[in-house]
């Protein structure tokens, strides 16, 4: 087999060792499985390509591959969100089923082909936390005028409920939350949030992130490069990404529990979103999807397929899985 050298960029900074770590893991596995013949050099965001510009960069061949989250590119077409996460979407396991066995793979491949990209699912964050709030939010009325830093479709839903999504500069988030210039900030989950120290400036930690019930990360490969790649290497690459998929979820599942315990021990108050808020948010999300579907036939095609799959998943997992989970939560007390 020939010696091949690729460049890969990550959308995630090195300090997010879970996310950046997954791309490192994939590069290492590819090298190991090919006896170091297929080498991928990994770059942090900003080194070659900005973190939110991986889609264009991979499509054009600035880099050969990129590890990113597709919901960064919803400004191009909201359909990209289905490759990552949408409000009231599928959890990690359901998303994997749609991508591996459902129609997700085919639908997404068609979408990415137009960008000259071959996409492979590579990692899932799992259900995220609903962010840090300075004051308690009990009803939809409490959301009125709430200044929250929440990007993308989640922000659209919040705006429908009367909140003010404010995408203030990254460096201003911490001081703005500390002083109450904004009321709430969302990030990822306990392990990543703890490092940013939001618990020092906001007391309430809400759960769950109904706008991010999962969070699939994707590996993008330039389509020309993919087609040039020897068949064995393609298989190796996809296998490494599949391993990466399991790796990221395992990492989060292992690191999040102790991190949340530390936060609680330091005085963080965890609060669940009320059912009123979540059902109103669900209705708002549905109406947003209908609006987009009316304008965007591709979105509609994917959305219909995705929604039917999601609903069947929720029913089935409730029959066995969720019953088992609830029972276990009760008995270990």
């Amino acid at each position: 087999q020939p010696a091949i050298r690729w460049r890969m960029t990550s959308s995630f900074p090195k300090t997010l060792d879970t996310l950046f770590g997954t791309s490192e893991f994939v590069c290492r596995r590819v090298s190991e499985m090919t006896d170091e013949k297929f080498q991928i050099q990994l770059f942090a965001p900003g080194e070659l390509v900005a973190g939110n510009a991986v889609l264009d960069a991979v499509g054009k061949g600035v880099v050969d591959a990129g590890h990113t989250a597709s919901n960064y590119y919803t400004g191009k077409d909201p359909s990209f969100a289905f490759d990552s996460v949408v409000p009231f979407g599928m959890n990690s396991r359901q998303q994997s089923a749609w991508m591996i066995m459902g129609d997700g793979k085919k639908l997404m491949r068609n979408l990415f082909k137009e960008q000259n990209i071959y996409n492979v699912p590579c990692g899932n964050i799992g259900t995220q936390m609903g962010g840090w709030f300075r004051k308690e939010i009990k009803t939809v009325a409490d959301l009125k005028g709430l200044k929250i830093r929440l990007p993308g479709l989640g922000g659209d839903v919040m705006a429908k409920l009367g909140a003010l999504p404010q995408q203030i500069p990254g460096s201003d988030i911490y001081p703005a939350l500390e002083r109450g210039t904004i009321d709430a900030v969302e990030w990822i989950g306990p392990y990543d949030d703890e490092k940013l120290g939001f618990n020092q400036v906001a007391k309430y930690y809400y759960t769950p992130s109904w706008w991010e019930g999962g969070g699939q990360c994707s590996m993008y490969v330039n389509l020309d490069k993919w087609n040039e790649l020897p068949k064995e290497y393609r298989a190796v690459f996809e296998a490494a990404c599949a391993e990466g998929q399991a790796y990221m979820q395992a990492m989060y599942d292992t690191l999040n529990p102790p991190a949340l315990r530390r936060l609680i021990a330091k005085g963080t108050q965890v609060r669940p979103f009320s059912n009123e808020i979540m059902t109103s948010a669900y209705a708002a999300a549905e109406s947003i999807y209908e609006e987009i579907s009316a304008k965007n036939p591709r979105f509609k095609e994917i959305y219909d397929n995705w929604k039917a799959f999601r609903n069947s998943q929720i029913q089935w997992l409730g029959v066995a899985e969720r019953r088992f989970d609830n029972m276990m939560a009760t008995v270990i007390r």
Binding site: D56, G75, K76, P151, G152, P165, Q167
Partner: peptide, 21 residues
């Protein structure tokens, strides 16, 4: 070239209520 793609796609900011790019 980059401008033209953004123009042709009608690319928007991905922030809620954001502007045309």
């Amino acid at each position: 070239d980059v401008f033209w793609t953004a123009f042709a796609d009608g690319e928007m900011s991905s922030n809620s209520g954001g502007l045309l790019i």
